[in-house]
Every structure is written in structure tokens, then in C-alpha cells.
Design a protein around this nucleic acid. Sequence first.
DNA 1: CGGTAAGCGAGACGGTACGTCGTGTCTTCAC
DNA 2: GTGAAGACACGACGTACCGTCTCGCTTACCG
Lengths: 211, 211, 211, 211
Amino acid sequence: MAARESAPPAPNAGRRSERSRRAIYDAALALVVEVGYPRTTIEGIAARAGVGKQTIYRWWPSKADVLMEAFLDLAERSAREAGEQPYSIPDTGDLAADLKAVLRATVDELQDPAFDAPSRALAAEGLVNEELGRQYVAKLLEPSLQLYVERLRSAQKAGHVRPDVDPRIALELFVSPLAQRWLQYTGPISHDYTDTLVDYALYGLAPRPQA
Amino acid sequence: MAARESAPPAPNAGRRSERSRRAIYDAALALVVEVGYPRTTIEGIAARAGVGKQTIYRWWPSKADVLMEAFLDLAERSAREAGEQPYSIPDTGDLAADLKAVLRATVDELQDPAFDAPSRALAAEGLVNEELGRQYVAKLLEPSLQLYVERLRSAQKAGHVRPDVDPRIALELFVSPLAQRWLQYTGPISHDYTDTLVDYALYGLAPRPQA
Amino acid sequence: MAARESAPPAPNAGRRSERSRRAIYDAALALVVEVGYPRTTIEGIAARAGVGKQTIYRWWPSKADVLMEAFLDLAERSAREAGEQPYSIPDTGDLAADLKAVLRATVDELQDPAFDAPSRALAAEGLVNEELGRQYVAKLLEPSLQLYVERLRSAQKAGHVRPDVDPRIALELFVSPLAQRWLQYTGPISHDYTDTLVDYALYGLAPRPQA
Amino acid sequence: MAARESAPPAPNAGRRSERSRRAIYDAALALVVEVGYPRTTIEGIAARAGVGKQTIYRWWPSKADVLMEAFLDLAERSAREAGEQPYSIPDTGDLAADLKAVLRATVDELQDPAFDAPSRALAAEGLVNEELGRQYVAKLLEPSLQLYVERLRSAQKAGHVRPDVDPRIALELFVSPLAQRWLQYTGPISHDYTDTLVDYALYGLAPRPQA
DNA sequence: CGGTAAGCGAGACGGTACGTCGTGTCTTCAC
DNA sequence: GTGAAGACACGACGTACCGTCTCGCTTACCG
């Protein structure tokens, strides 16, 4: 439609070296895992990728953007490998069981440094850089959360969730606590823990009148 | 009993300049608000505080630690100003109302840049630096969360919360969603929103058998 | 044959900026004249030359080495400007007259701050840093002294100097006293003074048997 | 007659600690020998002497002045130890022999690091700091040179030196070459060398008419 | 002979410069 | 005409000393 950039001559994406891109992704992810995000530098990435610095600056505006793309690419590849229906929450009819299953899988994923390190790094950058934070949410978080929204809608249709409940808010009852414990070290995360969250969220804290 | 440091000669805290400390706190907080955390530098803090860099390095190991102390000091002073019972959650007997009131106050606080900017900066640093992250939790977060624990225990005694519920986990149902929306920009925060969180958390998402 | 450096990656001299080099030379010489050697700093040179500090550290190991090169360059340029026979001592057949002429010119040169300041600074550094001192001698002093050696050899051939005299030592009789008075302020320097030195050195202090 | 300083309250020399002064002298001399002059710092001297920095700043204006006094003190003590007539040149009637003897002794002294290091350091500082340079000459150099003046005067009376020769200049013919070789590494120094200097200086470079 | 003011060891302070590292821009050369 | 290589201006880092300034303390002198 229109040129995106104005000042720089807008590099010709057609000629872009796929080889370099891959090397940069790999280097960025490896460095974040190995030395941590703050000690990961653009010079370091370039050196490790066997690439000129300019090649990075030509295509990405910042270290965080490199990592963001690298991580999205990683997620995509993982998903592709993992198999069929790339992303969705099972719907067996038993809402509690389905949520527990997904959250258990999430807990496992969060323990994997290859996922934890870059993801945490991006989150950290996003806290302090609103622009990037919103990208993080839009590209990484929200797509996953929408799966919960769908599963909860389905549960509402089946009468297992109150119809007046807003699914986008409801999902936060079990997702946000896990997220916070993970990111901020406010507590240990485990399968038991997420099971409990699901139970509390679905049935509430207040005693049931009859039961 | 035992010497703490070994390499550096352990500065004599008795001789410390109160004047400099105050100036450093003020400068650090002001800069984080004005130019943002990443562009806040130790040199900048020193210059603004009218202090030698060494005076900062003598007493703090890193920018983040300076900010942490500065922010703790700020919180303390605010609390002292604010009044008597420094921190507690009202206990009117109506759990929902009490929680909503506290969360509304928290929402307001999170909008204040003087609180938001440093707090967010520390959280960001903590994501990527586990040591600091745990300090952040221990010194800033957990004390507040304990107030929720107490209030929930009191509610359990009054029979307003199921006795088998773990209050430390329960509080996350309404605190963590707010925290995540605030920190990660996953959604807007408002009084309505926190009210809803309290309702969902207390009464659950699943329909009640009788009502 | 063998790599010279090992730790630093040995900058590529081909890419070196001539512009920066010149600016650094000029700044270094100007500062030494204006504020003196001890108050000439690498930061100051960089600032005045409009150059990053690293550009200095990349090419020179120390302030003294910068100044050494700058001064050598200055000397070379002066010589080139000055004209034809770049460096030599006249040989009119009258040894005393020739030596007096050269020494008078030297006296004049030593009074010029543009020469005195850097030269003295390098000498001072060389006193305390043997490595640099030897460079100073090899690059700056010895070439000039060799001219005296040649002139004295020529005089020996002509029978004006005893054949058993070592010219390399002989020249010190008039050069070193001047050098010491100049460098150490042990006495005033003037054309009369150097004339006297030549006379004393050529004809000795002891009375001549006949005369 | 009048207070020397005006701004500072002029420390009371009567109360001065002799113990500290000695310790400072010793530390200064030792450090200059061990680590070299440029890496000798006032902080280092104070630490090594077990003395507060202020005790140094109270009594001396600069590192060089400390060293100057320390070295003068050392020289004095050495002289006192060495024996009776602290400094003088023998007068056996044989001028050449007497000069050679003294210069040989000087050569030996210049090889001793305890003498060489501080002396060289002060000379270096003096090159670049005229004020100090003149002090160096007045306090350290000139007194020794005066001994040569006297010896030469005596030789003139005895008819061994031409009466029209200026002894203050004459002495430089053998002293300055040695000084330059020593300070600037322009050549090796040895007994042979100084013997040669004396011969050249006394009898000149030009051939004698008769012999 | 007891009080007080000085010198003292100690070391924190506001500064300046150090030498290094990383940024983002620019230029050169090879493919 | 893209990309590897890397020099460049710049800015911040964390360290070392500077010279000044309190702090107790000890020590002499003086009233």
C-alpha cells in the first residue's frame, strides 16, 4: 500500500537472506538462555550468528524486537512439530477436567528454560515499554487466552458456567494467578496448584447454600 | 557475629550522610518517573542528587537496588503520612464489600505515576533477575498480600468462606488478575473490573444448584 | 610470521580514519602547550578532537604514546616545510663555527613553546617509564646526535679533532650541558653559553703547554 | 614575622608527630622504589604509613613535595652515616684523578635503586613543573655542583685549569653528560665512561699544537 | 591538675579521569 | 546491491584517587 518507513530507504525484503535470519533467531534465543537477557547484546547476537551488526539493525529496531520475532518463530515451529490442531483446548464436556489438563501442560512448559527465558525477557521489557508490552500481549498472550474464551463460551452453552459471566474476565481467575507466580516468583507452581485454582474459580470461595 | 562482606572494606554506616541518601532517593524516583527506568542511569541519579557516583556505589550494588530502597522509603513515608493503622483491610463483616473497597483503592494507586513508574520498573527488573524479584516480593508484595490472608481467615471464622479454602491461594483470584492487567497491559483496570473479580471469585463461575 | 597482539583483536589499520588521526595530533599538541602535560587528559584530547575516546584507545596504548606520535609528526612536518637538506650540520671546514651555529639554532628552538612543551613532557614521562624513555631517545634524540657524530668524524679526517676521540662521547660535551640546562632549569641558556661550551669542549680546560 | 599561610589556620608545627613524619617518609620512598612514581599515590602512602590522609595534606602540598622531603631526609641520613665531612671533593693536587674518583662514586650511587627511583621521579616531576624543578636544583643538585666549582677554583689557583675558564660552566662538561645518560637512557654509564669524560673535558677534543 | 584545643587515624564525601563495553551509524570490500 | 566486517561518535559503566570534610581519640599545654 504505502512504504512503511520514510527516512531509511526501506530495505528490499525480497533480497533478504533467509540464512542470516535463522542464524540470528538461533543466536538470540541461545544467548538469552545462556547468559540472560540483560547480558544479551546485539553485538553478541551478531557475532554468534556470524552476521554483521548492520544486518540486524536493517531488519529490526531493537534487541527486544529481534527476540520477539525469534520467539514467535520458535513457538510456531514448536506448534508445527507438536502436531495437528495447533492450538485449542480440549472439549470433553467436563470443563474442570479440560482446564486442569491445559493448565498442567502450561505449567510444564513454563519450566522449560528454552521457553521461560525468552518469554520472561520479553515480558520484562514489555513492563517498561508499553509499545512492546502491547505487542507481547497481542501476539503471544491474547491468542492463547482466546482459546479459554472459546472453551468457556462452549461451557456456558452447555449450562456449566453462569450465562452472565464474562469469559474474558473469568479466564483470568485461573490464568493470572499462575502467570503471576511464574513471572514474579510469588509462589511455587505445580499441577496441584493449578488444579486448586480451577476448583476455586469454578465453585467460588463462599460456601454453597445447600450443596 | 560474622563478617558479611569480604572483598570491599565494608563502609562504615555510622558515618553515612543522611542528606545524600535522601537526595539519591529523590533523584532516582524523579528520574524514573520523568525519563523512564531504562534511561535512568546511575550517573544521572548522581548528577541530579549532587552527589559523587562513588557515594551510590558505596551503598548500593546496582541501580535496581537504589530504586528498591528509594521506593520502600517512599512507601513508608506515604504510609506514615496516610495515618494510623498503616496497612490493613477493613473488616465490616461484609467480605465482598471490604475487598471491593480495598481493590478500588489499589486501582487508584496504580494510576499514580509516582507509584506506577518505580513499581513497574522494579517488577520488570525482578522478572529477569530472580534475586531481585524475590526481594520485590518479600519486601513489597507479600506484606500486602498477608493482609488479604488475614481478612480471609477472619471471613472463614465467620463462615463466609469455605473452611477448606487456602487463603493464600484464594487471594490470588482477585489480586493476580488485577496485577496482570496492570503490569502487562492485558486489559483496562477500573473499579467495575475489580468489583467483578470479587464477585466471580467469591461465588464462582459455575451455576449454583438452588440460588 | 607471528601475530603481534593476542588479547585485543588488532584493529585494521587500513580502515583507519586519517581525519581523526590528524585531529588527535592537533588536539594533543595544543593541550600540552595550553594546559600542560599533567592536565592534558585523554578525555580532553578526545573532546577537543571531536572524537570518541575509544578511537584513541584503539590506536594508542597511552597518553604518552599519543603525544609521542603527534610530536614526531609535527617534527616531520616542520622539517618538510623547512626545506631541502632535512637534517645535517653544515661543514664549512671550521668545526667550532659549525657547531656554534647549530647549537645557536637549537637554543632558539628550545625557546619555542610549541616545541618545548611536548618535548619536555615526553622527556619527563621517559624518565619514569624506561620503555618510553628509550623510544624517546631512539626516535627523537639519537637521529640528531648522529649528525654530530658525522660532523666530528669529518673533522677527525681533516685533523681538527684528535683521532683517538670517540665522537659519540665527544658530542655530549656540548650537547648534554645544554640539554640539562634546558630540561632541569640548572641555568640559563643563550648563544653565548653554547659558544662557550664549544670552546671549552674543543680546547679543554687545562692550559695548553705552548699556545 | 608573619603567618605564612592565610586561608588555612597554619598548623602548629610544635605539635607535629615525628612518628608520622618518619612513617610517611619511609612509605613514600618504599612505594616509589616498589611500584614506581606514577603508581605511588597519596592514599597509598597514607595507608602504608598507617596515617590519615589529612596528616599528609596538612604538611605537604603535593605528592612530589612529600617525596622531595623524604629524599632530602634520606640523603641527609646517608651523609650522616657515611661519615665526617659530609660532602666534598678530595683535593690531592691531581685534578683529573680527583674528578674521576668522585664521578666513579656517583656512577655507583646512580645504580642503587633506593637512590635512583626517587631521584628520577623528582627529576621527572621537575621537568614539567618548573617550580618544583627549581627546588630540585636548588636543594639537591646545586649543592653538589658547588663542590665541583670549588675544586675547579682550587685547580685554577694551582695553574691546572686555565684562569679564564668559568668553573660553573666547566663542571657541566663532565657532569651533564653523565646526568643525561643516567636520566634519559642515552647510553650506558660506567667508570670508563666517566674517566673518558674527564679526559676529554680537561684536555679538549682538538689536537694539541706540540704535545 | 583538669579543661580544652590541637594533631591524629579513619574514612565518607563531591569530583574528575580512567579504560571498557555497547549502541546505532557509516563505509569498505567480497560475493 | 546485500551482507560480513568493523571503525566511528557517543554515552554509561564501575573503579581509582584527588583534596576536603567531619568524626571520635589521644595528647600536650595552659590557666
